[in-house]
Design a protein around this nucleic acid. Structure first.
Lengths: 209, 209
DNA sequence: ACCTGAACACCGTTCAAGT
DNA sequence: ACCTGAACACCGTTCAAGT
């Protein structure tokens, strides 16, 4: 017998082995030894399957730090794990960003823990959601950046028309152009942006001192 | 005769009238009075078409403020126009975020103007790209948020399990639950996050005072 | 209530054949 | 060099028919 739980599990397995291009209704059905049409007795569309997977993954986002660490450290830990989880599941980002959280229990649980962390740190109720949404926007974009190719800023033959940009790309993270210390560009940008936003949010919308 | 310019223009027209679901190779060919296979003499794939459209739209992102206004005001204006342009073209975000800028002249031009703005404000060459990438990550995520439905945080029947989150959602932007002043939630979160990140970046990675 | 099998209405892409 | 027409290998989804 089919069930939401079995469908979710099979979908995750399929994705981990063949990526999201391998997650088709036909392949999903086959991995469950069932006809494709049988799936539609348990989900109403492929979007529904993606929502199931999304909600499952949301349970892997670490919120425990909100109970033990100071607000800024907790936000940083939460944001980093959130980014890491969905960097491996980019096609879900439009799903999270655009679909209501109704019927996504793990997602709601995650938000509840985050909200409590903000409240415990002294944030006003009315400012929390805007701050969380701002952080999430940054997290989603950063998840894409994790998957960007190393040569994404290669200007190629257009270098002469963009000398300053080309130089900035060549010297990224290092004042010395030649010295190529191994460096994770995506992590550097994420850490920089995250620290900036956390500090900025605390100053602008955080609790009164 | 077909050309990249005509294909780009036809694709944009198709998208503006029927959205990205209406942008198929067949529809694009039809709008150009040509067989679908003819397109492949000018582009190598649909991704190629999307890249053409993306680069065209990048020309609509406002960078002029970098030449006239102080750094933080210029960044704010650039970021807002960047978000507004691609909020109407969500399917292009993976394209921008993951594809090299080679052969995307308008995109390179945009980055050159931004880089010059940072340099003029006294930023060190090696910090600029990380800062721009962090800002872009936030911009891409915020473009999604513009398209989020109003009820995206409706917990539905799960309200009892997430009381603090539910309350934060109900009071979002307003200490008074009942008073429903018309409010653009996406704009509020974007403005908050943008101000936070601009202030934070200036403090962390900006020019020495 | 749940599943099968066949069909439908699409996709993007290829390729021999023409001009 | 550029285009046509037909075909290919897929998609997600529907629905009558079975149990």
């Amino acid at each position: 017998m089919l069930s939401s739980a079995r469908i979710t599990k099979a979908a995750l397995k399929l994705v981990s082995h063949h990526g999201y291009k391998g997650l088709t209704m036909a392949a999903l059905a086959k991995s469950l030894n069932v006809a494709p049409s049988a799936l539609y007795n348990h989900v109403s569309s492929k979007q529904d399957v993606l929502l199931l997977v999304e909600d499952h993954l949301m349970g892997r986002v670490e919120v425990c730090a909100f109970a033990t660490e100071p607000w800024d450290a907790a936000v940083a830990k939460w944001a980093r794990s959130y980014r890491d989880v969905f960097a491996a599941h980019l096609p879900l980002i439009p799903v999270i960003a655009l679909l209501p959280v109704t019927n996504a229990p793990a997602t709601v649980t995650m938000y509840e823990a985050v909200t409590q962390g903000f409240l415990a740190a002294g944030w006003a109720r009315e400012s929390i959601i805007d701050a969380v949404v701002a952080l999430e926007s940054f997290i989603y974009g950063s998840a894409y950046d994790v998957n960007a190719p190393e040569d994404i800023f290669d200007v190629g033959s257009l270098a002469s028309e963009a000398p300053d940009f080309s130089a900035a790309v060549a010297h990224r993270g290092n004042p010395d152009a030649a010295a190529a210390i191994p460096r994770n560009d995506a992590d550097a940008a994420f850490t920089l942006g995250l620290q900036a936003m956390i500090a900025g949010l605390a100053a602008t919308a955080g609790p009164r001192k």
